[in-house]
Design a protein around this nucleic acid. Structure first.
Lengths: 234, 234
DNA sequence: GTCGTGTCAACTGTTGACAGTAATTTTGAT
DNA sequence: ATCAAAATTACTGTCAACAGTTGACACGAC
């Protein structure tokens, strides 16, 4: 019999990293907020070494930024940078969807259809906003991304990029009616996948994410970020 | 009078990181090779702390991989993973090219045209292979990526992804005649950019990178990687 | 009152030593 | 000779203390 070690030899730095990401996601650490190493390490019951290591790794993923001899702080991307990330997500998820169309199994397609079926009967959908911006939308995209079978793509979209996006609660900025529209777009994507039409699947996914980006852009313009002023005007 | 700080407060960890990347690019550290922290730190004249920090950052960028309690080693992606990165590059550079088409200045277009002009008269081009796989091709893509004005896109394509790709010298695997074809493809891209046609520019760039990927795929099949066997067969 | 300078405290950057784990070698039995 | 188990070794993971830099504050000159 062969089994995985229960605790995968998780090092303190690993735990500290997870804990940091959690804290940022939960909102305990706000974007731009500085992190005092010594204090945080004491609170976690570890020394500064492993904590610094966790910080360095997140720094490599641009979730944290460090100013030499000053300190690390949670990344605080401007509205423009968030849009940039969404644009990248558009083409990358398009790619994932194209690949998924080629190699998705029947079982995976069924699962996707079932997820969408659950959505349609879910009460939140009728209500409007919340659902698509929380787990429902996530599940749909998640399944497709995993179906791409591309290790790097999965890591990027489900790991780095997704966490980066999730930090900033701009999900809340969905417009009323966006949920229903998104649901219809999901249907179109599913159709293309079932038809095993890579080009159509990619186009449908790109259109879907592009619309979400557009909605986001409008929402962001309402609470402007001064850092974007200098490059607007075009 | 305004001036840059002389030495940008570069920390030992920063220098160690650059040094590591350099060493990997130069080939001093081969893919899969393990890194002995203590030894390397001594050779660099620093202690293990900053070195570990540099390692952690590169770990976050998946240039190095760490196995707990065993050690770090240079990432050694399988042929399949390299193809995956190229596929991501295809859509991301396509995006960059689309954005560049919208906002490139006349000066930038001139510079690009000049680069291409240099290429056409460059002796290596007539010879065949080497040129496009070295700095020439890089310059062309570099200019377009920068012209996208997207901070994240530039970081990803010119930083993380590019270094990752560069580590593995599969550039050498270009086929004879590929250089001339690539040159023609560059011309098409430039045409679309000059016409300020975003869709055409994106399509042209995607086609260009897709062809390079295909060439690479063929070259990689010759020296197979055993790790890809299980997922082949399709 | 404003500007510039000097001092100070708090924090980060770095170090060397210790503890713990995984691989290797050695030893012993079959 | 082959294999298994135990001891050794070499490395990583972790810690606590030291050194250096930064930004703030107070003081003094203009």
């Amino acid at each position: 019999m062969q089994m995985e070690p229960l605790a995968k030899s998780r090092t303190l730095a690993d735990q500290a990293m997870d804990m940091l990401v959690e804290a940022i996601l939960r909102g305990d650490l706000e974007p731009g907020e500085r992190i005092a190493e010594a204090t945080l390490a004491r609170n976690l019951g570890i020394s500064r070494g492993p904590l610094r290591e966790a910080i360095s790794r997140l720094e490599g993923k641009s979730l944290l930024v460090r100013k030499p001899h000053v300190g690390v702080s949670v990344a605080s991307p401007s509205a423009g940078e968030i849009i940039e990330v969404f644009q990248m997500r558009e083409v990358l998820e398009g790619l994932a969807c194209r690949m998924a169309a080629k190699q998705m199994t029947g079982i995976e397609l069924d699962r996707l259809e079932r997820i969408l079926g659950d959505h349609s009967t879910h009460s939140d959908l009728q209500d409007g906003r919340a659902y698509y911006q929380s787990s429902g939308d996530y599940d749909f995209h998640y399944q497709i991304i995993v179906a791409s079978r591309s290790k790097r793509l999965i890591d990027t979209l489900l790991g780095d990029l997704y966490q980066f996006i999730r930090i900033f609660r701009y999900r809340a900025s969905a417009k009323p009616g966006r949920a229903q529209q998104a649901f219809r777009e999901h249907m179109l994507i599913l159709d293309a996948l079932k038809a095993r039409d890579p080009a159509a699947a990619e186009a449908a996914m790109r259109a879907h994410v592009a619309r979400a980006t557009e909605t986001l852009r409008i929402a962001l313009q309402e609470h402007r970020d001064p850092r974007d002023e200098h490059r607007a005007s075009a």
